[in-house]
Amino acid sequence: MLRDITLGQYYRADSVIHRLDPRVKIVATFAFIISLFIVKNFIGYLIAGLFLAVCIRLSQVPPRFIFRGMKTIFFLLIITMVFNLFLTAGEPIFTFWKFQITKEGIKLAAMMGIRLVFLITGSSLMTLTTTPNNLTDGLESLLGPLKKVRVPVHEISMMMSIALRFIPILMEETDKIMKAQMARGADFESGSIINRAKNLVPLLVPLFISAFRRANDLAMAMEARCYRGGEGRTKMKPLIYKKRDFIAYLVIVLYLVLIVVMGRILFR
């Protein structure tokens, strides 16, 4: 049923990674992505790969869930690798017609491939082990300093969590409206793309109206429950760093140091 869809792709388990503070996970993911762009040699990638593998192991998420995310970038991956393979200038190894494959090309293509795979794996590990709710809380807290320059951080995170709550409801509603229109002879499946897009109008109009009505009701319900923005608000589930979170930060710092040092040593 539509009500059962899980947003993002959270995988329920009780591992060390799951229990980490969301802020730690967001920072770690960023650090990991940055590290991928610092690295210039295969030993660096080996370290990054090992680090990632250990994290996946600790998270208890079955690898097939992690690689499922790869399907979506498969084409991007192939295209990137092909372009790098053929269009890099350097010492040619293999030539036919106008194309040539160079030594540098092979190296660059392989690096790009590994970089992309690691990037996607790393970020899906974060979304797999953190509930959308925790993620918004973490973001709100991390972006907190931006409040000083008048970025409405609390409002943005509130909007995100409301959107998350209403997505399944609106999906169900779409389904209902679609069935109601189909019962009266609407056709959503055949015809050219333009025709199909046109046929969506009788679906979108009622959906929008209902979404606005819901927004209005919800705003009133929030006001009735004393909502007045982030000012003076307390938290039921405040984010508090525990010992394991500090250890995790330490691990990340060590990992970054290792990556940088390895790069230096090998490039001297």
Partner: peptide
């Protein structure tokens, strides 16, 4: 409407 007044997930 019960759906339109629940804010939490």
């Amino acid at each position: 409407n019960p759906d339109n007044q629940i804010i939490g997930q």
